[in-house]
Amino acid sequence: MKLTKQTDFALRTLLYLAKQKTNNRIFVQEIADAYDMPVNHLTKVVNKLSRLSYINTYRGRNGGIELGRTKEEILIKDVIIDFEPSLTPADCENCLLRGGCGLEVHLAIASDAFIDSLGNKSLADIC
């Protein structure tokens, strides 16, 4: 399964923040520079991470972003589920073989196995 850039950027951002000292706020530009990401796209990802309470954002001179939960509370599979538009590896909705093909069931099983394989791995487990 290939993750979208949005999910990739979200995971990288969380990993970057997880490696920082406690109470050390980071600017989005710093993460964009570290991973060579477009700052505009990363800003959209940061906004979504904030809406989902993965991070806290602050404005002003002492602003920046930081983790909104502990590293142990942020599960990798949750981030993937929250950011991936679809976890199905193929679009079987408009397929001519729909109903006469057994592939859709096996692809769903494989997708479930991918998510299950992440278990309860948190940011703390992979940092």
Rank of each mutant, 00 (worst) to 15 (best):
Q20N: 15
K21F: 04
T22D: 02
T22V: 02
T22F: 05
N23W: 08
N24E: 14
I26A: 05
F27H: 12
F27W: 06
V28N: 14
Q29F: 00
E30H: 02
A32F: 13
A34N: 08
Y35R: 08
M37V: 09
M37G: 08
M37L: 12
P38G: 10
V39P: 04
H41S: 07
T43R: 07
T43M: 01
T43K: 07
V46R: 09
N47P: 06
S50A: 15
R51W: 07
L52N: 03
L52K: 07
S53L: 03
N56A: 03
T57I: 12
G60M: 01
G60W: 04
R61Q: 14
N62L: 04
G64Y: 01
G64K: 05
I65V: 14
E66G: 00
G68K: 00
T70G: 13
T70Y: 03
T70P: 01
K71E: 15
K71R: 12
E72A: 14
E72D: 12
E73R: 08
I74R: 09
I74D: 09
I74C: 07
L75I: 15
K77N: 09
K77L: 01
D78N: 15
D78M: 05
D78P: 01
V79R: 00
V79W: 00
I80H: 11
I81E: 14
I81W: 02
I81V: 11
F83E: 10
E84Q: 10
E84V: 11
S86Q: 04
T88I: 05
T88G: 00
P89L: 10
P89I: 14
E93Q: 13
C95R: 10
L97E: 08
L97V: 14
R98T: 01
G99M: 08
G99V: 12
G100L: 08
L103M: 04
L103P: 01
V105E: 12
V105G: 05
